[in-house]
Nucleic acid binder design. Sequence first.
RNA 1: GUCCGAAUAGUGUAGAGGCCUAUCAUGGGGCCCUGUCGAGGCCCCGACCCGGGUUCGAAUCCCGGUUCGGGCGCCA
Length: 443
Amino acid sequence: MSLANLRTHYTTQIDPGKIGDDKVALAGWVHEVRDLGGICFVVLRDRQGRAQITLVKKKIDRELFNFARKLIRESVISVRGSIKPEEKAPNGYELIPDEIELLNEAESPLPLDTTGKVDAELDTRLDSRFIDLRRSRTNAIFRIRHEVLHAVRNYLANDGFLETSSPKVVATATEGGTALFPITYFDREAFLNQSPQLFKQILMSGGMDRVFEIGPIFRAEEHDTRRHLNEATSIDIEASFVDHFDVMEILENMVEYVYNQVIENVPDALEVMGIELRVPKTPFLKLTYQEAIDIVNSHGEEELKWGDDLSTLSEHTIGEHVFQETGEEHYFIIDWPTEIKPFYAMPYEEKPEFSKSFDMMHRTMELSSGAQRIHVPEMLKNRIADQGLDPEGFDFYLRAFSYGMPPHSGWGLGCERFVMTMLGVENIRDVVLFPRDRRRLSP
RNA sequence: GUCCGAAUAGUGUAGAGGCCUAUCAUGGGGCCCUGUCGAGGCCCCGACCCGGGUUCGAAUCCCGGUUCGGGCGCCA
């Protein structure tokens, strides 16, 4: 028997007015069994939703009735039968079964409740992610995450960007800043890459003109917060013959597009989460770095001087200030001091202590950072040396700048932070299927 | 890394030295019930993180450990 016979429809695909006398098969998990004595309801759940299977004792085979009322929750079943329009049932129909096939029986008790009656802590849910995913809220988060990634790909491809993939195993820990995970690569030491940055720039020399990559990045920092992971997903772009303002425009328009697509394509998931999504207004406010630290200093909770990076507290101070002033949650901070940005950020010609760099912020945290990049090899070598890095380790990268490198700009956007700020999710682990943090390496 | 807090049935919780043979909900088992949709009713089952200490007596107080949560730091 072909397994295709186990399911003819998802629960949400049945139109009770049109189906007539045709037999249908639904397959999924036993969400609940409500045995009322003379009548028994089995709620079957699949990825899309739920359906009610109704068994009336007097009208149905006694053996089938007794089998149904003894089903163990979260077991996997396939049910074949006929559809009866019924306004009292979910989706406007109920399934009157001819047969119920038990495909895999669940053990009892379950590691956590899937119906929403009893909460479970994040740690408990992550330990049993396979069953946590059966909860409607968790299911909704990952359907939305899919829609976000799908919309990003659509937007960038339509804007002339080619999707690329760069290596995650790299030879040298050269970029500086963050710590890398060392690994063994045959008989050599290698590292997991912290960012596709250097590779996407090389692609600009290759004439690919506009590229993007959605992929994992690895940071070996021992950070321990609700917004950091050691393995995250980065949405990166790089584009030639454009400046930082051009790529900021791409970024804000993409954010707007993604919000709209989520609203249009997964409204049911938003409803499950109880979210009425508001689309950010473009263009986003642009604060200079100087204005940003002035805001922090005028609030008096901490004193920042020029050249300081923004603390977590100051990010919140600025975010709240912008929200009070504009009612918007997204904004840019531009014109950062060259010394606190990575070596590849292009300084302004007339004031080289400032760089053509930006961060895209949400009210609560940093979402993205980008810049126009240095495309002049001598300047790049000097900047690498200025930051205390060894230019020799950058040969594979620097060579690309000596044979025709166009001016270019780009950014990286944290996928998880984008999703969590969109949905108001407070812990980044909630928007990753199998998060990797300081402590968790399994599942 | 550091500061603060927490750890009780499968899950989520109550608990402030004797009231604990440990609360409630959910769940599981049994029985009743023909329209439930967090079904309802009755009965039953199931737990104090580990190791020391204080005390006549510890789930409760102290010390150490482990694990978890939150803040900060670290962090293209």
